[in-house]
Amino acid sequence: MNEKLIKLLRQDSRTDPRELASMLGVPESEVTDRIAKLERDGVIRGYTVLIDEERLDRNAVTAQIELKVTPQAENGYDGIAERLCGFPEIAGVQLMSGNCDLLVTMRGSSFRDIAFFVSENLATIDGVMSTRTKIILRRYKEEGVVFGDDDDTDERGKL
């Protein structure tokens, strides 16, 4: 049940609980109780909005910055990760497998903004050995939603 509920909320977290209840075939109170419990348990961490950044501001830049880091003896990667989380400019911080250690996502109003932020604030952190900045050029799909110009790809009745 939670799995189906979460799938529907991922599609549209604003769906009326009454409609969720009818789709899931349970009383509305069960839906609101489950959501409340998921929030209490920290499974649902918040409700946000999916923005097509390109349409919002053509010059805005989103970057993913790969950091190679020397883990610290006392707290591994956590100390540096927590420090990164403290920057309001940074939207996401994740510990990765593979070539990089920490992946930082951030938005800025220009390439310069991002480049300066990285060189001044990230590269200078003790334990950060290298940074590699990658710019997102175009989003095709995010959170299951396709970002095309033409979202009417239904050919039924038209072929």
Binding site: R18, E19, S22, M23, L24, G25
Partner: peptide, 11 residues
Amino acid sequence: YDMRRRLCVQL
């Protein structure tokens, strides 16, 4: 389909 069916009936 089942989810949509229940939603349609309610709406």
